[in-house]
C-alpha cells in the first residue's frame, strides 16, 4: 500500500500519525493487504436478496415511547455545559 493511500485513509478515519508511525503503518498495511488480495482470485458477487432473514412488518418494534435516560446519566462521561455535550465551536 502506498504512503499516499495510508495518509488518505487516516484522514477518513480521523487518525493522525507521526512520520515514523506512518512508515510503520505503510509496512503493516502492505503486509495485511497481501492477505486480503487473496480474494482477487475468486469471482463472487454479493446478492443482498440472499441475506433475507424473513423479517416482516409485524416483527418490527411497536411505536410506543418509553422514558428516556436522565440527563445527568447521559452526560456522566462527558465534558458538559448547560445540559449539553461540548465541542469546540463548529463553523460551517
Amino acid at each position: 500500500m502506498e504512503l499516499e493511500m495510508v495518509k488518505y485513509l487516516s484522514k477518513l478515519a480521523k487518525l493522525s500519525y507521526t512520520d515514523e508511525e506512518l512508515e510503520q503503518a505503510v509496512k503493516d498495511m502492505t503486509s495485511i493487504i497481501e492477505i486480503m488480495d487473496t480474494i482477487k482470485d475468486i469471482d463472487v458477487t454479493y446478492d443482498p436478496y440472499k441475506d433475507n432473514h424473513n423479517v416482516y412488518l409485524e416483527d418490527l418494534r411497536e411505536d410506543v415511547a418509553q422514558p428516556s435516560l436522565p440527563t445527568d446519566k447521559l452526560l456522566q462521561n462527558a465534558v458538559n455545559q448547560d445540559n449539553c455535550f461540548v465541542v469546540p465551536k463548529v463553523v460551517e
Binding site: 418494534r61 411505536d63 410506543v64 415511547a65 418509553q66 428516556s68 435516560l69 440527563t71 447521559l74 452526560l75 448547560d82 445540559n83 449539553c84 455535550f85
Partner: peptide, 22 residues
C-alpha cells in the same frame, strides 16, 4: 411517530435539552 425510529425515546418536537435521549 410517537417514538424515535431506532429507539423508544419520544419523537416529539422540542423538550429540555438532552431529555429525550437514551
Amino acid at each position: 411517530t410517537n417514538s424515535k425510529v431506532f429507539c423508544t425515546c419520544s419523537a416529539e418536537f422540542g423538550g429540555e435539552k438532552n431529555t429525550r435521549c437514551c
